[in-house]
Every structure is written in structure tokens, then in C-alpha cells.
Amino acid sequence: MIKLVIFDADKTVWDHYNISEFEAPLKLVDENVLQDSLGRTLKLFPNVRKTLEKLKERGVKIGMATWNFPEKTKAVLETLGLDKYFDVVISRDFPFKFIMISEIIKRLREQGMSVKPEEILFVDDRRAHFGNVWLYLGNINCLEMWKDVNDHMELISKL
């Protein structure tokens, strides 16, 4: 049984490839679209909000492991009103997802939740990250967004 779902951000949760280049202030264009001060836009993929709500309803913990500057990730999540869904967000300026996932597991343990690798689902748009996740963290379930699933709501059926 999956107790923790961890999402990548760029090209997994939203359509932009690198929010670290966004410049403040950020403004909401509509519920699922934001724009930075230079006019760059970011749009949530369909059903992201609905999927996060369903996960929460089921009591599943939600994490984010993203290769972005932490202050940029925080600003985007807050502007979109998504920060309330995530129990732990680890945003680092390096690509090593297995380290970020380890940090998420550690933070949850500090909050009193123990989770085994097979109880974790990691969703990323790049399969390249999965090898080190399995090598260093064990039998974590990994799904490649847009290959293994084509809509965020499909993730619910994978639980």
C-alpha cells in the first residue's frame, strides 16, 4: 500500500521546464496559471489539483523533490495555492533525486511517520532519475509521467 507519493515539479506538475529562472513578483493569471515579472508563464497540468486533493482525502502523504532553487519553488507553490497539499518539499540546486527523497523520508520520520521503500511512489518526467533511487533507496515504486501515466488522475488508480 502506498503511503507517500513524491512528485518532481518541472514538466511533471506544471508545464515549465525550469522555474528557477522565474523572476519575482509572480502573479496569478487564473487558478492554474502564473506569470513572472518578465512575462514567462507556467501552467499546471490538467487534474493536478484534483489528484492532490484525492491523495489527501485518502490520507496519503505528499512530497516534492525538485531540482530548483528552494525560494523559487516555495514562491510558485504558494502563488498557485498548492503549498497546503505538500507535507514535505525538498528543492535543491542539484539533480540528485535520491538524496532529496532520502531527506523527505527523514523529515517524515522526525514527524513520527515511518515509511518503507515499497510504500513510496515517485513520479518524475525523467526515467534517468530512477536508477539511483533504486540503487540507494531500494524498491521504491517509480512512474515516468507521460510514459507510464498520461494524466495525473491515473496515479490514483496506481495506488
Rank of each mutant, 00 (worst) to 15 (best):
D125E: 12
K106D: 13
R107M: 08
Y85I: 05
M1Y: 01
N132D: 13
L137K: 12
K3W: 04
P70M: 11
K147N: 09
V123Y: 05
L121Y: 05
A65R: 04
M64E: 13
T41P: 04
P95L: 12
N18K: 09
R49Q: 10
I2G: 00
K116I: 02
S114L: 12
D148Q: 07
L38S: 02
G112Y: 08
W67T: 05
F122Q: 12
F22R: 03
D125L: 07
A128T: 03
N18L: 05
D151G: 03
T41L: 06
F7H: 12
L159S: 02
K158S: 11
Q35I: 15
L26H: 04
V88W: 05
T41Q: 03
L143T: 02
E118M: 02
M100T: 09
K3L: 01
H129Q: 11
E110A: 11
R40M: 11
N32L: 13
A24L: 14
A128P: 03
I140L: 01
T66W: 06
P70R: 13
H16R: 00
F96T: 09
P25V: 08
A65C: 08
N141E: 06
K74A: 15
L121A: 02
F122A: 13
E103W: 12
N150I: 01
F22H: 06
N18W: 01
V29A: 06
N132T: 10
W67E: 09
E57A: 10
R109S: 02
V60L: 15
L135N: 07
V149H: 03
M145S: 08
I90W: 11
E23S: 03
G81D: 15
V88Q: 13
V123S: 02
E71F: 15
L28R: 04
W14C: 12
K97E: 14
F22N: 08
L34Y: 03
K97C: 12
L121D: 07
I105V: 15
L28T: 11
Y17T: 00
S157H: 13
F98G: 00
F86K: 09
I19G: 00
V76A: 14
D124K: 07
G59F: 13
T51C: 14
R107L: 05
N32M: 11
G131P: 00
K116W: 05
D15S: 01
W14Q: 07
E23P: 04
E118A: 01
V48F: 03
A128K: 07
R40N: 09
E110P: 02
K3Y: 04
Q35H: 00
E118H: 07
E110S: 06
P46K: 05
R58C: 01
P25M: 11
T73A: 15
L38F: 10
V60N: 14
A75W: 14
H16V: 00
L26E: 12
M100L: 10
V76L: 06
L38N: 06
C142N: 02
I62S: 12
K147M: 08
K43R: 13
G63N: 13
H152M: 15
K74T: 15
A9R: 05
